[in-house]
Write a protein that binds this DNA or RNA. Structure first.
Lengths: 144, 144
DNA sequence: GTTATTTGGTTATCATGATAACATAATTGG
DNA sequence: CCAATTATGTTATCATGATAACCAAATAAC
């Protein structure tokens, strides 16, 4: 995350960036993007927290739901669609299971693996939070 | 942070966004921005980690250094320039002091407060990492 | 000038990201 | 088919973000 309120001056960027072949306008553009995104992510996490979710917990529900031809995904498949580390995925799935938003069953075909499905409450939670999520994203882009 | 690899389809965004007055193009733009920024932030944290810093530790050094008329800043002043919570600032300053990149002295005028200054090593570390930092930012914007 | 409020900073605790090391199961190679 | 390798998940540990509750000092109110 990037929380510097006042970005470096053009002057300062030029002093340090130009001699090393960096483009000052690009540098400032990247800083602006990181700053905007950090503020937006913070806002979204607050929204999700108020709905008993987090960005990652929400994304897990989304990727399970948006595979219409599959009843369940394995933790590994979910991790392939969301690039967080394996331990983070393990922990997140356990927390979603604890909150009864997903079920985790043993896989009959591969004893190392699991089958993760949305519960009705998980689907409901997803549908309850999705519109507000999109609304925040949309408003953010309007005001910038 | 936002780590969904494949963004939702236009179709899906329209289904959920439009009925609630959200603009699908804006939603997708916001998702793209969050995704790009998350990847960039991850890359930058890796760069800083290899130099014994983190984004926040680096920003603290920067804001102290870029106040040419001041020899020191108080923790509160630093926190005003970087919007992280107070406990995070306390912990970060202590870690920088432990690594001898800053000094923290009691303030003579206000016994609640402190005076934070860069050490020569802190300034050196800053100057060593700044060009590479700008280079990463610049390259990121070129390739996108 | 004493009391109440505000300000500056810390501690305790939690959430969410990471890596390293591990156990167990599946697969591949000979 | 047995040994070696690869794949799937988990545990342990750490870093960096947050809030709540607190102490001590400064300031404001009366």
């Amino acid at each position: 995350m990037f929380f510097l309120k006042e970005l470096p001056s053009r002057q300062m960027v030029e002093t340090y960036a130009a001699p090393y072949g960096a483009n000052p306008a690009h540098v400032i553009g990247a800083l602006r993007m990181m700053r905007s995104a950090s503020l937006l992510i913070r806002k979204i996490e607050a929204y999700f927290a108020a709905h008993g979710l987090s960005q990652l917990r929400f994304l897990v529900l989304i990727v399970i739901d948006r595979e219409p031809e599959r009843r369940s995904l394995t933790p590994n498949e979910i991790a392939l669609r969301i690039d967080v580390s394996k331990p983070v995925m393990t922990r997140t799935l356990q927390s979603l299971q604890k909150d009864a938003l997903i079920t985790i069953l043993a896989s009959p075909s591969d004893k190392r693996s699991k089958e993760v499905s949305l519960t009705p409450q998980g689907l409901q939670r997803l549908q309850d939070t999705l519109p507000g999520y999109y609304k925040i994203l949309s408003e953010e882009m309007e005001n910038n």
